[in-house]
């Protein structure tokens, strides 16, 4: 009984950290388009991150809730319709209550429906896991995505303010993302190295 509880806790912890360890932008390399387009300033980045997280959580929870009722053959069209519904709700909300924001990120919000993160998580996680786990996973992924966007947004906004106007263009976006990815890889590799060194030291201790 206690083994099962331990296992559950581990799974929950792993899922909750998924946003960082399996960061959708830097590790899974999903959801590229909005990352480049909406990261020119912090407001856009934050708004898009929240919008995507909303769609992610709502659609995946519903999919997870009804995962046993949706036949395999109509899996994809069903997921697409569910996701598209929530995206449309966000679009209607923006057009009605936040028209200024709608001017800047309207077309990008429309693309959430083809954001690989949403469909990808639905396919790989929500369709196979309980509602609670899906909720944790989506929240984590959503937060991870939003934080990545915010990071890029802050960097680009800062650089544009310093008069490096190139970073307001797509090329600048590619550049920042590419460099950030390299940085992320570097950090991950260093952490892995330290981990291996630690376990090797532990092994040596045991041997001795």
């Amino acid at each position: 009984m206690s083994n099962k509880m331990l296992l559950n806790k581990r799974i929950i912890k792993k899922t909750a950290l998924g946003g960082i360890l399996e960061n959708p932008v830097f590790v899974l390399v999903l959801g590229m388009c909005p990352t480049i387009k909406a990261s020119t300033n912090i407001t856009d980045a934050f708004a898009l991150g929240i919008a995507t997280t909303f769609v992610l959580i709502c659609s995946n929870v519903i999919i997870s809730l009804f995962r046993k009722f949706i036949p395999d053959q109509v899996r994809l069209p069903a997921y697409i319709v569910i996701i598209a519904t929530f995206v449309t709700i966000v679009q209607l909300f923006l057009a009605s209550l936040l028209p200024d924001l709608n001017q800047s990120i309207g077309p990008i919000v429309a693309m959430i429906v083809v954001n690989c993160i949403v469909l990808g998580r639905a396919e790989s996680f929500a369709s196979k896991n309980s509602v609670l786990l899906t909720l944790i996973d989506c929240t984590s992924m959503g937060i991870g995505f939003t934080l990545s966007l915010l990071l890029m947004g802050a960097i680009r906004q800062g650089l544009i303010a310093l008069n490096f106007s190139i970073f307001s263009t797509t090329a600048g976006g590619f550049l920042v993302l590419g460099l950030l990815m390299a940085l992320f890889n570097f950090i991950m590799m260093t952490v892995e190295k330290r981990k291996m060194q630690k376990s090797r030291a532990g092994l040596n201790e045991e041997v001795e």
Partner: peptide, 22 residues
């Protein structure tokens, strides 16, 4: 370099091409 391998270098190449096109 190892940290640039994969998508990182692809993005940087894309950045240079994007500058040209733009």
């Amino acid at each position: 370099p190892k940290i640039f391998q994969g998508f990182s270098i692809a993005l940087i190449i894309a950045a240079i091409m994007a500058m040209a096109f733009q």
